[in-house]
Structures are given as C-alpha cells and as structure tokens.
C-alpha cells in the first residue's frame, strides 16, 4: 500500500492566519452512536476490569492502579469509560461488517479483541519509550493482554491455515514498523511507517472481512486511511509537545526543508523558550497548519471512498462526520 499525496502544495498563508491555538484545539466531529453501538461500547468498557481480574491475585489491584496512573488518571469514571476516548471508527468498523456469516457472540468478541489490540498498542508504546517503567506487574499485564488478543483472534479464524495471513502476517508487519528498517525522511514515509505500526489493530477487521466476504483491500484502505488521519490530527494537536520533546511528527515533515531546523532547535526546551516562539510563528505563517488540515481531510476522503467501495455506507457516513469541524476551520482560514 502506497502513500497517496493528495493535499495541495504549501502556499503562502492568508493575510491573517488563524493562531496555532485554534489548530491545537481542533478535533474530529462527534459521531452519534446507534443504540447497538452504545451497547458495544459499554461492552468494550466492561472488559477492562475482568481482564485485570484474570491476572494472578497478587497483581490485580496493582494492575488497576497502573492503568489509572499511566492512562486514565485517577478519576474513577475514566476507568469505567476507558474506550470512550477512542474515536468510534476505530472499532465501529467491525459492527458495520456484521452479517449472517458471523454470530452476534463472535462479533462481540471481535469488538472486545479490537479493544485489547488498542490497549496493547498503547502499552507497547509506553513500555518501549520508557514512560512506563518495566516491572513484573507490567510484564505480566502485557503478556496477559497479548495472550488474550492472539488466542481470541485465533478462535475467530475459521481455518488454521489462514492464521498466517490473517493474524501473524499483520503482527510481523507491526513489528517491522516498530523496528524501523526504512528511514523516515518525508511525510509519505512517515505515513507508510504508521500503516505498519497500526497493523495489530487491523487483525480483527481482516478476520471479519475474511469471514463475511467484504473486500479485504477496501476494508484495509478505509481503516488505514482513517487511522492515518487520526495520527495526523494527533500530531497537529500535540505539535508543541512533540517539538519540545524532539519528536519528528507529521507536522515536522510538512514543514519546508529550510524551516525544519526551527523544529529541531526546540528539543528539550520549555514552552517559554524563544525557539518555540519562533517555531510557532513559522507554523502560523508558513501555511503548514492549513496544509495539515487538508492532509487529514484528504485521508478521510480516501477512507470514505474505500468504505463506499466496500459497501459499508454506515462507516463511510461516520468518516464524513469526522471531517465536519476540519472543513469549517479551513473555511475560516480562507
């Protein structure tokens, strides 16, 4: 799968560009869940505590504390609504793919496993970057989540001979993206790398495509393009944090080559630093911010078109709803 550059090239910004803050606060449009989707979300949220209870008793309370400490914060409601914070198309795709070829119980299991795939993705990221210190508790939590994900996925694959293509091939792709064989030197390479990195969350959509007969290529394209749009939106919202942390995000790769040094100069500094002020002015006046919005909208359009090709109009409709506030922001900018 290749990167599809569809956004407009960078141009001089408008006379009075919107402030960086307006872009940092932008978000996808909210999707009104159907009653069935609300029930699926409740089921997703309910699985976290039983999952912690599946650990050895000596680790259970520690696991809850760890999830609060490193992810949800200590607000008790956050813990009970863990998956509410994910954009719905990250898991509603599975529900839209429901058909007579798969039982309601299997579909529910697939949605739960998708939640586990996202939990693992977050956990791996923070364990690998050192934000979460390694401990016996965290090792076992990760092991248990991985076992639950793999074993559950294997149960949903009809034939053992398909496990390589529907599960382990994607897992290999995930680790290929994490180990980073190819250097990233452009937004195209950055997006292609991210396609690899999201592969564990593609396992369940691919299993369901196999079970239900939806076109796997179109389902993959719809889901991956949505995820890239999501990633770039996160990059836009977190651009200050990323620049100060020295993270080379999608926003960095949108900067003209001659202005990228301004991003690199911010590493390790505080928001009050002159270098950040310089970079934020550069972001505001170079046209990078509206270019990022156009890029996100382009990926959402790709996702929507693929969903329509796959005969998933409900999913395409959700992707359209995501785009609303971004379109409005661009209209304000112009």
């Amino acid at each position: 799968m290749c990167y599809a550059p569809v956004s407009q090239p960078l141009t001089d910004s408008a006379i009075a560009p919107l402030k960086l803050q307006a872009y940092q606060q932008i978000n996808f449009g909210k999707i009104a869940l159907t009653p069935q989707q609300q029930e699926s979300l409740a089921g997703l949220n309910r699985q976290l505590i039983p999952f912690c209870q599946s650990l050895p008793p000596a680790l259970q309370t520690g696991a809850i504390f760890a999830i609060q400490q490193y992810f949800t914060g200590f607000q008790l409601g956050n813990l009970q609504q863990f998956f509410n914070k994910f954009y719905a198309p990250s898991w509603t795709l599975l529900g839209w793919m429901g058909s007579e070829a798969i039982s309601a119980a299997e579909l529910e299991q697939a949605i739960h496993l998708q939640g586990m795939a996202y939990f693992l993705h977050m956990l791996d990221d923070h364990l690998a970057d050192g934000q979460i210190p390694i401990s016996h508790l965290m090792l076992q939590l990760r092991t248990q989540a991985w076992m639950r994900f793999i074993q559950g996925a294997e149960q949903l694959v009809l034939s053992e001979s398909c496990q390589e293509s529907l599960i382990y091939g994607w897992i290999n792709r995930y680790f290929s993206g994490m180990q980073g064989a190819e250097p990233v030197d452009s937004l195209a390479a950055y997006c292609d790398r991210f396609r690899q990195q999201l592969s564990t969350t593609l396992v369940l959509p691919m299993i369901l495509a196999d079970r239900t007969g939806y076109n796997a290529d179109d389902v993959q394209e719809a889901y991956e393009a949505f995820c890239i749009a999501w990633r770039l939106l996160d990059d836009l919202r977190d651009c200050q944090e990323d620049a100060l942390a020295g993270e080379l995000s999608g926003i960095y790769y949108l900067l003209p080559l001659e202005q990228r040094q301004a991003w690199l100069d911010c590493q390790g500094l505080e928001p009050a630093a002159a270098q950040w002020q310089q970079l934020s002015e550069c972001l505001e006046f170079s046209g990078v911010l509206p270019a990022a919005i156009r890029e996100i909208l382009a990926w959402l359009a790709i996702a929507q078109a693929a969903a329509e090709r796959a005969n998933l109009p409900g999913y395409a409709g959700e992707l359209r709803q995501l785009a609303g506030p971004l379109v409005e922001l661009l209209e304000m900018e112009s």
């Binding site: 609060q68 400490q69 992810f71 914060g73 200590f74 607000q75 008790l76 914070k85």
Partner: peptide
C-alpha cells in the same frame, strides 16, 4: 497511592494519557 490521588477521584477534568 489513593490518598495521594484522592483529589482526582471525582475530578472530571482529570487528564488522560493515551
């Protein structure tokens, strides 16, 4: 641990770190 974070237990503004 709970005592240290007790002010957050009911705080709807408690940040998440996904």
């Amino acid at each position: 641990m709970l005592y240290q974070h007790q002010n957050a237990l009911m705080d709807s503004e408690e940040p998440i770190h996904y």
